[in-house]
Design a protein around this nucleic acid. Structure first.
Length: 741
RNA sequence: GCACUGGUCGUCCAGCGGCGAGGACUCCGCACCCGUAAUGCGGCGACGUGGGUUCGAGUCCCACCCGGUGCUCCA
């Protein structure tokens, strides 16, 4: 006997081995037809899955229909099977890897022997999928003992599945399979009852992926698609993606002249155009003012530093791969002259001989025996003067002493030098040094993306030097400041907090003794708890010098980015031997907090552009108000209005083009100018303007003074109104883990 | 870095191996002097770079550069 509790609270009894389908049929024919899957004790299961009472409690059962979100995931996973089946029909010998669902659809990793798939193949695959869904064959589950299962997939020639069983699934005694017609796949399930339930699907893209995400393993082709129960939902999704595409910061950046990237300057290096620079500048001054209020002090430090600085800090060995190569400068001026001269080809042998001697390199020549006249003589090895020019340069590069500089990948070592420049007393702490510090990191070419992943960027950085007792307080106020910037001022509240911890197995964290790390992580946790900030923990994501709390936001295409970060650091003060003199007149080690509430100005601006869909609130808008004269006849008055706006400290422009007013308004709307002041003969007569709001439209005429006061009030309020409509539907997290095989 | 995909006026898109490279927007000029999302006419302006195949290459092939998507990485 099986006892089942239904969502209405009723508990019913069924025979042993009853399946959700039977229960649905018992409830009603309509429900039975609409049923897609079920949840038993919260776990999604097939309709045909026999139910068993594990204990005395009745099983909580819910029949899922197309209205339930869980059902959509099931549908998409089944559609992934349909796609794999279609691909296998079209291309013999296809090997399958993983085929999970994602937040917005599904993918399947495949290898097509002797060929690579391209999007040109989509129509054929989709046609085959349509045939399969039309046939509406059932998904049939069966199980095999693990050894038989292994042999079964091996016989199918599915090497990846064999490896997956060997690596991870062997610990389960029994593995499940799903058969649909000729197609059988190792799969945990669950699945929809039959392929006919797939109402609408679409293949989206194709990309490369590594088997098990490992660079040293096979490259697979990942085919992305999505599916819905209803064609209408698919259409809506496609429209939504299209909408998201329109607010892509790369597109808006170009359309609104905010920034550009020139291949000649270099990929991943941002050129801020006047309008973008204006927005960024306003943001920066706003932050600077807030920092002053919170006891921060400004510093400026250079963009490069000697390599020894980074060797001391520990950055150099860890992040060697993602730094720009070092800048090398001969330490000796004669050596520099010699190298420069060789490169330019302007030095004769005599001049080189002289410079060699002056730089003290002569005695380090391959044969440094010197003849009576002081000139090197030719010995068994080739002498300098037998070398070609390129060889001479190479030789000198090996022999000279160089000063090596690094384009800085981080600001902290520079700030640390400011701390270390003088003896510090506990009375000075916490010392908060702030700088919009530009850093350079050589990101892999495939990783660059608009403003969100770049090679040169400016952090709204600061380093707090404090005592152990001050750590938690400072950490907390810093977190609160970050929230203040994001929530109250920018209306950007769709973020999550991540506690990035060390991973004890990772050698990069060896430098720190266990106690210190545990303490640091404990400090962060308790502050987050105190603040009632929900967070998740990510082991192995910490910086090499300490754990951190990161603010993660999502861009309009659903990609997640780390913005603000607050990091605790007991390591760098140690490495640099930082000290302060305590009340006991003894030296003590300070603790550092690294923090950047917005992260990088580039990435933050990218997110902000998308958040507002380019329509910045008045206080941030690069052009706040535009004067639109109806005709040339009121040009003089229009100029007066413009001057008055500028004098009031507003960012104003004047459109004197010989266009009709409709065209001027349209252009201003498209450029997302918050306020338009239309002036014609009527307005010129009585010193008024016709006020048009970007959002609300024509507001009618009002005195010029009133209009100015209104704009200024709105601007000073720093309100972030209409934080544009939410982007893509991607609101649920990845569900891939639920369907790993 | 790897896989796939793309690169044509400033931007967006056309362009069967026959090109004197087409359209729209922008920009410039001229006319129009206009009342809340597009006035008309004219003009300027491009085949990413380098090789190769071919009588002939924007179009086919190769390499590189740059972009997109994803993977890997991410201080």
């Amino acid at each position: 006997m099986v006892r089942v509790k239904l969502p209405d609270g009723s508990v019913k009894e069924y025979h042993d081995g009853v399946c959700p389908r039977e229960i649905a049929e018992g409830i009603g024919k309509r429900l039975a037809e609409a049923a897609v899957a079920a949840t038993a004790e919260g776990q999604v299961v097939d309709l045909d899955r026999p139910l068993e009472n594990g204990h005395d409690q009745p099983i909580t059962l819910r029949i899922l229909t197309s209205k339930d979100r869980e059902a959509l995931d099931v549908l998409r996973h089944s559609t992934a099977h349909v796609m794999a089946r279609a691909i296998m029909r079209l291309f013999p010998g296809v090997r399958l890897a993983f085929g999970p669902t994602t937040a917005n659809g599904f993918y399947y990793d495949v290898v097509v022997p002797g060929r690579s798939l391209s999007e040109d193949d989509f129509p054929a695959i989709e046609a085959e999928m349509a045939r399969i869904t039309k046939d509406a064959e059932p998904f049939e589950r069966f199980t095999l003992p693990v050894d038989d299962a292994r042999k079964f997939v091996a016989d199918l020639g599915q090497a990846f599945k064999v490896e997956h069983i060997d690596d991870e699934l062997h610990r389960y005694g029994v593995l499940s399979f799903y058969r649909q017609g000729e197609f059988v796949d190792l799969c945990r399930g669950p699945h929809i009852p039959h392929a006919g339930k797939v109402g609408a699907f679409k293949l989206l893209s194709i990309a490369g992926a590594y088997w098990k995400g490992r660079t040293d393993r096979e490259v697979l082709q990942r085919v992305y698609g999505t599916a819905f129960f209803d064609k209408k939902d698919l259409d809506a999704y496609v429209a939504q993606v299209e909408e998201a595409r329109k607010r892509d910061h790369r597109r808006l950046g170009r359309e609104l002249n905010l920034f550009t990237i020139s291949p000649l300057v270099g990929p991943g290096l941002i050129l801020w155009m006047p309008r973008g620079a204006t927005v960024r500048g306003i943001l920066e001054s706003f932050i600077k003012d807030e920092l002053v209020r919170r006891g921060y002090q400004p510093v400026y430090t250079p963009h490069i530093g000697k390599i020894e600085l980074y060797q001391t800090s520990g950055h150099y060995p860890y992040y060697r791969d993602s730094q720009f190569p070092t800048l090398k400068m001969p330490a000796d001026s004669s050596a520099k002259e010699l190298l420069d001269g060789l490169l330019a080809g302007t030095l004769d042998d005599e001049a080189q001989r002289m410079l060699l001697a002056r730089a003290g390199i002569a005695e380090r020549l391959p044969d440094h025996r010197t003849a009576a006249d002081g000139h090197p003589v030719t010995g068994a090895t080739r002498s300098y003067f037998e070398m070609g020019q390129a060889e001479r340069i190479g030789y000198l590069e090996q022999t000279c002493d160089f000063e090596e500089y690094l384009l800085r990948p981080m600001n902290c070592p520079h700030h640390i030098q400011i701390y270390a420049a003088q003896p510090r007393s506990y009375r000075e702490l916490p010392l908060r040094l702030a700088e919009f510090g530009t850093v350079y990191r050589y990101e892999q070419s495939g990783e660059l993306s608009g403003l969100t992943r770049v090679r040169g960027f400016t952090q709204d950085d600061a380093h707090l030097f404090c005592t152990h007792d001050q750590v938690r307080g400072e950490f907390r106020t810093t977190m609160e400041m970050t929230q203040f910037f994001l929530d109250s001022c920018l209306g950007l509240s769709d973020y999550r907090v991540r506690l990035s911890r060390s991973d004890p197995d990772d050698p990069k964290y060896q430098g720190a003794a266990g106690d210190i790390w545990r303490r640091a992580e404990g400090d962060i946790r308790s502050v987050l708890d105190e603040m009632n900030l929900p967070y998740d923990e990510a082991p192995g994501e910490a910086a090499f010098y300490g754990p951190k709390a990161d603010f993660i936001v999502r861009d309009c295409i659903g990609r997640q980015w780390q913005l603000g970060t607050v990091q605790l650091d007991y390591v760098l003060p140690e490495r640099f031997g930082l000290q302060y003199i305590g009340p006991d007149n003894q030296p003590h080690r300070p603790v550092m907090i690294h923090r950047a509430p917005l992260g990088s100005m580039e990435r933050f601006m990218g997110i902000l552009i998308e958040h507002f869909a380019g329509a910045f609130p008045l206080w941030l808008a690069p052009e706040q108000v535009r004067v639109l004269p109806i005709s040339d006849k009121v040009a003089e008055y229009a100029h007066t209005v413009h001057s008055r706006l500028l004098a009031a400290g507003l960012r104003a422009a004047l459109d004197v083009r010989p266009e009709k007013i409709g065209a001027k308004i349209r252009d201003a709307q498209l450029e997302k100018i918050p306020v338009m002041l239309v002036v014609g003969a009527r307005e010129a007569e009585n010193q008024s303007v016709s006020y048009r709001d970007r959002q609300a439209g024509d507001q009618g005429a009002m005195p010029l003074d009133e209009a100015i006061a209104r704009i200024k009030a709105e601007s000073d309020s720093r309100r972030a109104p209409q934080a544009a409509a939410p982007p893509v539907a991607a609101t649920t997290e990845e569900t891939a883990a639920d369907h790993t095989y």
